[in-house]
Amino acid sequence: MARQKHYAGWNVLRMRVTAEVTQFVDDDFVLGLAVDDRVCGLVPASESSIEALEKVEIEQGTGETCSICLEELIGGAAAARMPCMHLFDQNCIVNWLHRNNFCPLCRFKLPARE
């Protein structure tokens, strides 16, 4: 940056930065295979909030895609809409919410399982 013409004549402050990671993350968590999700900060959504999701039948030719499985939502398929209005394949979002209490797109939080 200091060598760019735009910054000619500016004083350059050189610094060395050292970062230390102090939180332990095991290999299973990195691979998404955490044995106890609560230890890793993942909390399942409450059953009542999962059951309260709006059920939607996909219309033919909408071209929408489930952001979890990345498959196109075909006409007549069962889908579910989160309170944040994001739409997912019903099986995908239910499985997701059994492990996490937030929307996979915008992080909208549903009530957590006690």
Results as ranks from 00 to 15, higher is better:
Ala2Ile: 07
Gln4Ile: 06
Lys5Tyr: 10
His6Lys: 15
His6Trp: 10
Tyr7Met: 12
Tyr7His: 12
Asn11His: 09
Val12Gln: 10
Leu13Ser: 11
Leu13Pro: 00
Arg14Trp: 05
Arg14Val: 11
Met15Trp: 05
Arg16Gln: 14
Val17Asn: 07
Thr18Asn: 12
Glu20Val: 10
Thr22Tyr: 01
Gln23Lys: 11
Asp28Pro: 00
Asp28Met: 09
Asp28Val: 03
Gly32Asn: 05
Ala34Val: 11
Ala34Lys: 01
Val35Phe: 08
Asp36Gly: 01
Asp37Trp: 03
Val39Thr: 14
Gly41Cys: 11
Pro44Gly: 07
Glu47Pro: 01
Ile50Lys: 00
Ile50Pro: 00
Glu51Trp: 03
Ala52Val: 02
Leu53Met: 12
Glu54Pro: 00
Val56Asp: 05
Val56Lys: 06
Val56Ser: 08
Glu57Phe: 03
Glu57His: 05
Glu59Pro: 00
Glu59Ser: 13
Gln60Met: 10
Gly61Val: 07
Gly61Thr: 05
Gly63Glu: 09
Gly63Ala: 08
Cys66Val: 02
Ile68His: 02
Ile68Phe: 03
Cys69Asn: 07
Cys69Arg: 01
Leu70Tyr: 14
Glu71Gly: 08
Glu71Tyr: 03
Glu72Trp: 01
Gly75His: 07
Gly76Lys: 11
Gly76Glu: 13
Ala80Arg: 13
Pro83Gln: 03
Leu87Asn: 02
Phe88Trp: 05
Asn91His: 10
Cys92Trp: 02
Trp96Val: 00
Trp96Lys: 00
Leu97Trp: 00
Asn100Glu: 12
Asn101Gly: 03
Asn101Phe: 03
Phe102Met: 06
Pro104Val: 02
Cys106Gln: 10
Lys109Ser: 11
Leu110Ile: 03
Pro111Ser: 14
Pro111Tyr: 03
Pro111Glu: 15
Ala112Ser: 15
Arg113Glu: 15
Arg113His: 12
Glu114Lys: 07
Glu114Thr: 03
